[in-house]
Design a binder for these strands. Structure first.
Lengths: 258, 258
DNA sequence: CATCCTTTTGCAATATTTTGCTTTTTTTCA
DNA sequence: TGAAAAAAAGCAAAATATTGCAAAAGGATG
C-alpha cells in the first residue's frame, strides 16, 4: 500500500495531463477503494488543487485567462535570448543605484546577472523569485512591495503594492511585458501586473523595457502605456533591422548587441 | 547492528531516490524495529530533511517552492511546545476570518497547523516562511506586508510594511515575541520586528500572544506594549501554576491545555 | 575489567488514524 | 418519474502512532 501523500501526488500529476479523472479510474490505478479516493479528492479540494465533480474530479485551472497561460509557456523557450537581454541591460546600472524589477522571466535573468556583477544595490521588486535570487546576498538591499500573493506567478499585486512604491525614488526601472508594438505601446495579459508596472514606471527616473526580440510588434489585451513614455528598450541581437529602423524613425530608442 | 548515523544516511539516500518511504519498509531494510525507524525519522524531521507523514516519511524538496531555496534550516528550540501552542491557538480561528501572523517560529507552527485545518482564510504576514507554507493552499488569500527584506530572519520590516497594514481590518492577530513579563509587558530583541507587531496589534479586533512557557517572566531590550493591551495569551501545558495564578490575579487571561 | 551511568533499542499497552464496507441519501439521465 | 450510479454518513476492522518501561548496548572511570 502506498502513502497518502504519494497518492495525492499521483492524482495531481494525473490531472495535470488529463484535466479530468473518474474516481473509479483512480481507485483502480491507485489500488485503493473508491471511498479512499473520494477522501483524497476531498483533501486536494480543500487545498484548492482540484475540484470535485459528480463522478470524479477536475483540475482547477488558472483563474487567469488562457492566453496568459499560452504566453507563459512560450516564455521559457527564449531563455538564451533573455540572458542576452539581461547581460546588456545590466551594463546600464551603476554600483549603489536603486533599481526596480517587476515580475517576469526576463527580470529574473537580470536579477541573476546583477547578483554576480554588483556589490551593493538597492532593488525593489514584486517578484518573489527575484527576492530568492537576490536575498542570499547580504549586501543587497532588497525591498519587496507588499500586496496580494499570486501563487501562480510568485508575484505580489494590488493597490497596497502600488502605494508602497510611492515611497521610493528609483534610479532605473527594468520592466518586462508580454508585448510591444508601435501601435499599442506596451501591453500585457497579466491583469494584476499592469498596475505594478505603471507604478514602477512613474517612480523611476530612467524607464527601461527589457524584452527579447520575439515580443516586438505583438500585442496583448491590456494597455500599459505608449512607447514614447519609455526611455529605452533593451533587446537581443535577432531583432530584424527593419523593425529597428522603424522604431528609430518614430524616435523610440532601442539598444541591442551589435 | 548499524550505527544510528549510518541508518540516517541510508534513509536520506533512499529518500533521495524514492521521494517517499514507508516506515515498515525501512524497518525491514535497516533491520531494526519500526519504533527505531520512527525515532530516526523524528530526528531527521527536526533537522528539516524529511517530513513525517502517517505511515512513513517524504523527502523535503526545496524545488517544490522557489522560496525554500532561500531558507537555511536552523534548529528550533522548544518546537514541541510551540506546536502545542499552535494547535491550541488555531482553535480560536473560524473559517473565513482574516488573521495576522508576525515573524517568528511559533507563528510558523501556527501557519503549518492552519494550512491543514482550514479551507479558506485571509492571512497577512511579514514572514516569507509563513507565505511559503500557506502558499500551498490555493484557497488562502495571503497578503504580504512589503518592506525591507531581513535576510537573517526572512521577514520584512520598515515604515512601508507598517503602513500597508492600515489598509486591513484583521479579526485576530497572533503575535509571537521574545519575552513576556508582568513588569515589562511584551518585549523583544528584534528591533525591526517591534514596529510590525505594534501595527498588527493596532489593526486587530482580537489580540492574541502565542508564546511557549519558556517566554514567561523574562524580558528583552525593546518594549512593545503592556500586557493589559492583549486579549489573551496562549501557551503550553508546562507553565507553572503559580505564574498562571499571578497573571490571573492581574487580570491577564491565559489559555493553556489543561 | 568491573562498575556505574547514559543512551539506545524493542516491547507491550493504549490511543489515533486510515481504510473499506454497509446503509442511506443524492444526483444523473433516460 | 424512476432506475442506475455516485456520494455521504456511520461504523468496525486494520494499520499506524504514542507512551512508558525494562533490557541491552555502549562509554567512561577508577
Amino acid at each position: 500500500m502506498m502513502l497518502q501523500e504519494q497518492r495525492h501526488k499521483m492524482i495531481e500529476s494525473f490531472l495535470k495531463h488529463q484535466k479530468a479523472v473518474k474516481a473509479s479510474e483512480l481507485a483502480v490505478l491507485l489500488d485503493v477503494s473508491i471511498d479512499t479516493v473520494r477522501r483524497d479528492l476531498e483533501i486536494l479540494e480543500k487545498k484548492g488543487l482540484v475540484k470535485k465533480v459528480h463522478g470524479g474530479a477536475v483540475l482547477i485551472q488558472n483563474t487567469d485567462n488562457v492566453l496568459n497561460k499560452l504566453f507563459s509557456e512560450r516564455e521559457v523557450k527564449n531563455i538564451e535570448k533573455k540572458q542576452e537581454v539581461a547581460s546588456l541591460a545590466i551594463e546600464l546600472i551603476e554600483e549603489g543605484q536603486a533599481i526596480a524589477l517587476n515580475g517576469g522571466t526576463t527580470t529574473i535573468e537580470i536579477a541573476k546577472a546583477i547578483v554576480d556583477k554588483f556589490k551593493r544595490l538597492t532593488v525593489i521588486t514584486n517578484d518573489l523569485r527575484i527576492l530568492s535570487i537576490l536575498g542570499a546576498n547580504k549586501h543587497f538591499n532588497v525591498i519587496l512591495t507588499g500586496g496580494f500573493f499570486n501563487p501562480e506567478e510568485y508575484t505580489l499585486y494590488g493597490k497596497q503594492c502600488e502605494e508602497i512604491l510611492s515611497n521610493f525614488n528609483i534610479d532605473i526601472a527594468f520592466i518586462t511585458v508580454n508585448a510591444i508594438s508601435l501601435e499599442h505601446g506596451l501591453t500585457d495579459f497579466r491583469i494584476n501586473e499592469v498596475g505594478v508596472i505603471q507604478s514602477m514606471l512613474s517612480r523611476s527616473k530612467y524607464k527601461i523595457v527589457a524584452a527579447d526580440s520575439s515580443k516586438f510588434e505583438t500585442s496583448a489585451f491590456i494597455n500599459i502605456c505608449p512607447l514614447k513614455e519609455i526611455d529605452l528598450i533593451v533587446t537581443d541581437h535577432s531583432l530584424p533591422s527593419d523593425v529597428l529602423e522603424e522604431y528609430s524613425n518614430q524616435n523610440i530608442r532601442i539598444l541591442s548587441p551589435h
